[in-house]
Simulated assay, not measured.
Amino acid sequence: MSEQISRHLQSGAALVVVNVQNPEQRLDISREMLDCKCDLLLTHDGIRSD
C-alpha cells in the first residue's frame, strides 16, 4: 500500500490527514471525501493513550 501512496504523491496528489474525536465524525469525513471523488481513502481506528 505504501508504494501506491508514494506513486500518488509523486504524481502530484494531495495528502489530507484528519484527526477526529469519534467514529461518527470519522464516518462523516470519509463520506465527504468519497463524495469529492478522492482516489484513495485510508482510515485508522486507533486508540490514543495520552
Rank of each mutant, 00 (worst) to 15 (best):
I47D: 06
S49Y: 14
L15A: 06
C38V: 15
T43N: 14
R31W: 05
P23H: 06
E3R: 05
A14G: 01
E32W: 10
V16R: 02
L40F: 09
R48I: 15
H44E: 13
V20H: 04
M1C: 00
R26P: 01
I5V: 10
L15P: 00
D35L: 14
L34N: 09
Q21W: 05
L41T: 07
T43Y: 08
L42K: 08
I47W: 10
S6L: 01
E3Q: 04
S6M: 01
L9P: 01
L15R: 04
G46W: 05
L9N: 00
Q4F: 00
L27I: 05
C38Q: 03
E24A: 11
S6R: 07
V18L: 06
P23Q: 11
D50S: 14
L34E: 08
Q4W: 00
L40S: 10
T43Q: 14
V18M: 04
D39P: 03
H44T: 08
M1G: 03
V18C: 09
V20R: 06
N19W: 06
R26D: 01
V20L: 10
N19V: 08
D28G: 09
L15G: 00
L27N: 11
K37C: 12
R48H: 13
E24M: 09
V17W: 08
D50R: 15
H8A: 07
D50Q: 13
T43K: 12
I47Y: 11
H44P: 04
V18R: 04
A13W: 00
E32K: 15
R26Q: 11
L42A: 07
S30A: 15
E3G: 03
R7H: 01
G12K: 05
L15F: 03
M33E: 05
H8R: 08
Q10H: 03
R31P: 02
A14W: 08
K37M: 12
L42Y: 13
H44K: 15
L41F: 09
G12W: 02
N22R: 10
V18Q: 02
N22G: 06
D45W: 10
D45Y: 13
G12R: 04
R26V: 04
I47E: 07
H8N: 04
H8F: 01
M33A: 15
D35R: 12
S2C: 00
M1S: 02
S30E: 14
L27Y: 09
S11H: 07
N19K: 07
K37I: 07
E32F: 12
E3A: 03
V16I: 10
L34H: 06
S6D: 03
I5W: 00
L15N: 00
L41A: 12
S11Y: 04
V18S: 05
L15V: 05
D28F: 06
D50E: 14
E24T: 13
H44W: 01
G12V: 03
G46E: 12
N22S: 10
C36W: 09
S30I: 03
C36M: 14
N19S: 08
D45T: 12
L9I: 09
V17L: 11
L27A: 15
D39V: 08
L34D: 05
S6K: 06
D35M: 10
A14D: 01
R48C: 14
S6G: 04
C36R: 14
G46R: 13
G12S: 06
L27C: 06
